[in-house]
Design a protein around this nucleic acid. Structure first.
Lengths: 155, 155
DNA sequence: ATAAGTGCAAAAATTTTGCTTGTAA
DNA sequence: TTACAAGCAAAATTTTTGCACTTAT
């Protein structure tokens, strides 16, 4: 069944409890970045007994074990998402606040090289771009390169 | 005197008050990323009348005008730094928590291109790398990566 | 059995705000 | 002068904790 989640916890020697299963499940399925309160509301829907304290404790635990990653994207509250096997970018539309995610495997390689150049082994990375939508008219210097499938997630 | 700071505020139509001058000065001189509390303590040293509320109001104001940038690097509190004319990287040593900053002009160009590819005009960016120091002696099997210049931004 | 997890409510920690007084333009 | 800023303290938000009770190994 939920082998992915089970593995994540058991592999880290964590007890697989109901609340943890639910929270991990929510995060696995989420394609945005819930903050603790949203997480709690969603978890509460599936099991009304789950408390906010447990959500806080769980995300902290998961983060410590590398299962989760904290993303502070503008707002005051911390937002969380499952650590994927590949780090992805966040492109924030400054006007709408929408967040677009996409992968750039080549860039990850580049970053690994940069870290190495400074004497570090890259463990994870966060790349956040902030920009404004380009309207019909194209930017003068840089013609848009061939399009590439961008899986976009709205918030 | 402090033309840089004066310019930043007056250019944005802000009143140049004592507290603002002090806070901006502290941030200009800081080469780390103070959080609001540290900022307040430092400001308080120069003028004991400065309140925490003013520090909060000032950083928010400065951030809105692009004078400051908020950086959430791990800790719960927001950290701030002056916006430089060039965005720089942060490389966080996961063991010591130390933050190394460096520039990568080429990467900035690459990011601008990536944003453009997704239909955005890049306004600012944050790149944070998290890693572990490579100890030459402790890892027998891991020869330090021959640092190739990594000059080309792929694509 | 037992060490670890959870809920609840209370406490901390962090950030914002109302209101009066002070001050830069 | 006059609109905006600062100080202070109270409120709102966000996060952590103590303790008695459950639960997964």
């Amino acid at each position: 069944m939920e082998t992915r989640i089970e593995r994540l916890c058991t592999a880290n020697g964590l007890k697989m409890t109901g609340p943890r299963r639910i929270i991990a499940q929510i995060l696995s399925e989420a394609n945005d970045h819930p903050d603790v309160d949203e997480l709690h509301q969603m978890a509460h829907t599936r099991d009304p007994r789950i408390s906010l304290a447990t959500v806080y404790r769980t995300v902290r635990l998961f983060e410590q074990h590398g299962i989760l990653e904290r993303r502070n994207l503008g707002s005051r509250r911390a937002r969380y998402e499952m650590s994927g096997e590949r780090d992805h970018f966040h492109l924030v539309d400054q006007e709408s606040g929408k967040i677009i995610e996409f992968d750039e495997p080549e860039t990850e390689v580049l970053m690994r090289r940069i870290a190495a150049r400074h004497g570090f082994d890259l463990v994870s990375l966060k790349i956040e771009l902030f920009g404004r939508r380009l309207h019909a008219e194209t930017s003068p210097g840089e013609p848009p390169t061939a399009d590439e499938p961008a899986k976009s997630a709205a918030q």
